[in-house]
Nucleic acid binder design. Structure first.
Length: 433
DNA sequence: TCTGGGGTCCTAGGACCC
DNA sequence: TCTGGGGTCCTAGGACCC
């Protein structure tokens, strides 16, 4: 049996942990650069605010309805996610962290009442971290996703739904839109609707060969999973990434090479850090740069350049050098640039790097410097020490006008508990924030 | 004025090898 | 009449996930 635990409206719930005054109010969180709506509270959904809606288009509406609006605070979300996962780990020997707000738990062999167990998990996460979660339990991962969906959508479930016996599964699938099934996206939903397949149950009645032919083996796997045959296993150790990308839109459009070079150097530095976290080196690097596609009346330009590195590396210094050279090769004066990014590819384990007879880089020295840089930055905060090319802060940086404090990760942002005038200690009275 | 940022897997087709 | 049989690697494109 698999349980899928999913945090409700995760980013919004994170913003509410230290702001209980936001409970019951519409709240939204914006994407990077305060661009689009990427998380909504139930109240915001009730108001009809859509996922992915550009914030500037509905700014007046948000104001009129007194919606609380936040910039993305990934430091906060990452830390709270970590705490949720730690708590979940106590309830299973096998935990798969699927995304920042979702995890699968293998409940096989736990001799318990699934629903009661799920309720306990839910209460514990709520008490320890303050994040509300929904839990679906079923014999396969895809069915656990279905159960989770029902736990959220159907009133009276109390955030928990167990699909164990065939009757309950059939009833659930007959009432489940095929397009909502995990792994069936917009295109496949359109294809399926065109042959009168509307529910997950309809999909289950299709011929295996047809599914295999039109939806590849992935489609067939989903079908088997819906039929209760587990094809997807727990992934306990996250596989090393095959490509790592760091890209951002600029806070303001950029025309000059130098600020863009600072941005690209910073993205290369992030890629290098990510490579070192997973103990990998990259053999190839790509830089891309483009203008704002939402302004078709302005001159458009988009280019990328891939360069093969002589020896695979994860050194910030080396990656910045190549990224910067690639940028200089593709940059043209006379355009207003909106976004740039660095992607590293051909990733392999750092202990198995193929050297070169003609390599002039002192790799041991680079590794030693990176080790010290990482240690210092881990202790004192990101970019406490960095490469000069990254610059000292420019207008290309993200726009984040409504950023909440880093309540759990920065000393200066920790909430202060002030005893009320009567001198009572907070423990004695109401919940004091 | 203003529109996110990451990833994965599969298939078909072409070029090449013996 | 009739034209083999087995591979690999690479790329582009399309689908999906959060």
């Amino acid at each position: 049996m698999f349980a899928l635990v999913d945090c409700n409206n995760f980013y919004v719930s994170c913003e509410r942990v230290f702001r209980p005054d936001l409970n019951g109010r519409p709240v939204v969180v914006l994407s990077n650069n305060d661009g689009c709506i990427i998380a909504r509270s139930e109240e915001a959904k009730q108001l009809g605010i859509k996922m992915g809606e550009p914030a500037f288009k509905i700014a007046a509406f948000l104001e009129q309805n007194q919606v609380a609006v936040f910039s993305s605070n990934y430091v906060l979300y990452g830390d709270l996610s970590h705490r949720v996962m730690q708590t979940l780990g106590r309830f299973t020997p096998e935990l798969e962290i699927y995304s920042i707000d979702e995890a699968f738990l293998n409940l096989t062999g736990l001799p318990v009442d699934w629903a009661a167990y799920a309720r306990t998990i839910r209460e514990t996460v709520g008490r320890h971290v303050g994040i509300p979660v929904s839990i679906g339990v079923a014999p396969t991962k895809v069915l656990a996703k279905v159960a989770n969906h029902r736990a959220k959508k159907i009133p009276g479930q109390n955030g928990v739904c167990v699909l164990a016996d065939p009757g309950a599964i059939e009833e659930a699938l007959k009432n489940f839109d095929v397009g909502e099934v995990w792994g069936i996206g917009r295109q496949y939903a359109k294809l399926l609707n065109s042959i009168q397949v509307y529910t997950a149950w309809d999909f289950l009645q299709l011929d295996d060969d047809w599914v295999r032919k039109r939806m590849t083996v992935m489609g067939l796997r989903i079908k088997k999973e819906l039929a209760g045959i587990a094809c997807l296993e727990m992934e306990l150790i996250p596989p090393a990434k095959k490509a790592i990308c760091t890209s951002r839109s600029f806070g303001e459009e950029q025309t000059e090479l130098e600020p863009i070079n600072e941005a690209v150097a910073t993205y290369a530095a992030r890629c290098a850090e990510k490579l070192r976290w997973q103990r990998s080196c990259a053999g190839m690097l790509m830089v891309f740069l483009h203008t704002n596609g939402f302004k078709p009346h302005e001159p458009q330009y988009a280019r990328n350049l891939v360069c093969k590195l002589p020896v695979p590396t994860n050194s910030t210094i080396e990656l910045i050098r190549y990224a910067s050279a690639a940028l200089r090769a593709i940059y043209r004066k006379g355009y207003r640039y909106k976004k740039a990014g660095v992607i590293v590819l051909e990733i392999g384990p750092e202990e198995r790097v193929q050297g070169s007879l003609f390599d002039r880089v002192d790799r041991a020295k680079h590794a030693a410097v990176m080790r010290e840089m990482d240690a210092i930055n881990a202790k004192y905060g990101r970019d406490t020490i960095k490469v000069a090319a990254q610059g000292l802060g420019g207008r290309w940086r993200l726009r984040q006008e409504r950023l909440s404090p880093c309540y759990t990760t920065r000393w200066s942002d920790i909430i202060k508990v002030v005893a009320p005038a009567g001198g009572r200690s907070p423990n004695e009275g109401d919940r004091t924030q």
